[in-house]
Each structure stands twice: as C-alpha cells, then as structure tokens.
Nucleic acid binder design. Structure first.
Lengths: 141, 141
DNA sequence: CCTTTAAATGCAACAATGTTGCATTAGTGA
DNA sequence: TCACTAATGCAACATTGTTGCATTTAAAGG
C-alpha cells in the first residue's frame, strides 16, 4: 500500500500523522498475515517499547488495525478493511494459524454464519482455526 | 461434580491425585462458565503461584481442562467433556463472553460448521463470540 | 505397613510483558 | 510563526509466566 493511502487512513480517523505510526502501519501492511507483537518489536527496535504499545492502542481504537487472537499469550495485528468502523468491527473472517509455518492469516468468510445460540445474543464473533496453509500444503506435494 | 468423579478423571489420564489438583478441578467445575486465571489465583491463594501454573499445565496436557481464548491477555479455563481426547481436543463449541457480566460460557454448537477456506486445510477451530448472555438478557426485561 | 521412586510442590530468582507518570518534542490548525 | 494538544521517550513499576533446585508426597511393590 502506498504511504499516501496510509496517511489518508490516519486522517480519516483524526489521528495525527507521525513517523512512528507510518512505520507501524507499513510493517503491519507488508507482513503476510497478522504480525506478532514480538516481530513488531524486533522490526521497530528504534521505537520505544512503550511508544509501540501506545501506538498500537491508538490504531486499535481508531479502527485502523485489529487484534487477532490465537489461543496463546501473544497478540497478532492486521490492517482493517476500509469497511471496518472503529466502534463496531465486523470482522467476519477467520484467523487461521498454520501449524507448519505458524503464520496467522485473515481469511474471508465465504458464507454467512448464523450461530444458533438460543437465548444468548451474539453481537460479534471471531473464528480461530488452525491447520495447514495453502503454501505449506503445496510444498509437501 | 462429586470428588470421586474428579479423582476418576485424574486416574484415567495417569495423573496422580493430589489435594492441589482436586482443589483446582473443583474450583473450575463449580464456576459458572470458564474461570479466569486471576480468579483461580485468588481462590486458591494457599497454593503457590508457580504450582498453580504447573498444575494447570498438567491438566491441560492430560486433557481434563481446556483453555478458552477471549481476545484479551487473560486465559480462561473450563472442564473438558468426557469425550475430549488429550491429543485431539474437539471443542466444537463457542466461547461466549457476555459484555454485561463478563462471564465466559462454553456453548455447544447446534449445527455442523463447515468452514469454507479453500486450500487452507482446517484441523481445529474455536469460536469466540460476545454479546449478551441469557441471564443478563432476562434481567433487562 | 513399610520402603522405594518418580512426580509434585514450594521457594527463590529470573524473564517477559504490559502500565503509569512526567518532562520534552512535534503535528496541526489558526 | 504561534499556541495548543497529542505523541514520544525515559524511568519506574506491576503483572504474568518460567526455570532450577531442594524437599515432600503419591502410589506401587514387597
């Protein structure tokens, strides 16, 4: 994605354009799949550790990125779609962790999932899946 | 659940029966929904912090309990169904977090979910949902 | 019931992860 | 260019999770 596009996204959410934010967005954007926090910290070593946490938070609150869980301690981050609203993320996608390469992918949901949960009213949901990704599967053949 | 049942589960997995393990299982069993780690630590304050971590790990590996993610840092734990195998947990259920009371519930899946993920081969999955639970919904009326 | 042995426990120290306060710097609108 | 507020860096702290090691204990066999 071009830097101008990233700047545009920041402006759209009334977030100031700073070198740190652009660096962070670029790192997230260029990584295939959702990027682990530790990788961000390694890649953006020039940025203060605390600033990284706070910058991530700003972008989360602004709805530019979202956090992908993975049934572990570590957090992963990915860019949001344009359609995401800051207050009501509709991530109708699957966070898929490959058992082989350990990357986290954000896959689109190809069907409308209706969770039949009786009297429990579902507002949002997220699916964590694991298995083997396309790339690793084709390597095995 | 009776203590004898809990002991039986430990025996079935070749895990020694100790007061700590029984305490931990009882705490998890009696809590409505999946119990947060911090709550375990508070309830089992007599148990060493490290021992708690190790005991949880033993029970996880033995397949007596499972971890429920919740798009946050904190881990939650719940008893497994009898059908769970230690090596291949098939938790075809939904981890539902109530926005109001913040409890985590393990809801059964009432339908067979087929995740259409193309060349990505799904081995296991977990669904994290949030919204309003039955109890909180009925209080509002 | 006693002995033996490996597993479980408690404690200390450490490591990793995340947070808060505050002084300084920098982005943005006037 | 100025003024104002948000963003940053640094130090300190808090929380969460891990490792090593000496001691205790569950449970199997005589």
């Amino acid at each position: 994605m071009r830097e101008e596009d990233l700047k545009q996204r920041l402006r759209a959410r009334d977030l100031r354009i700073t070198p740190n934010r652009l660096q962070l967005l670029t790192a997230i954007d260029q990584f295939v799949g959702a990027i682990p926090h530790t990788k961000l910290q390694a890649d953006l070593a020039s940025m203060d550790r605390v600033t990284l946490y706070r910058t991530i938070n700003s972008l989360l609150e602004g709805g530019l990125i979202h956090r992908a869980s993975a049934n572990e301690q570590e957090s992963y981050y990915a860019l949001c779609e344009d359609s995401c609203q800051a207050d009501a993320h509709q991530h109708q996608h699957i966070h898929f962790k490959c058992d082989t390469c350990e990357k986290i992918y954000c896959l689109p949901m190809r069907q409308d999932l209706h969770l039949n949960t009786g009297a429990f009213r579902v507002r949002t949901f997220e699916i964590l899946a694991s298995g083997q990704c396309e790339a690793c599967a084709s390597l095995e053949k």
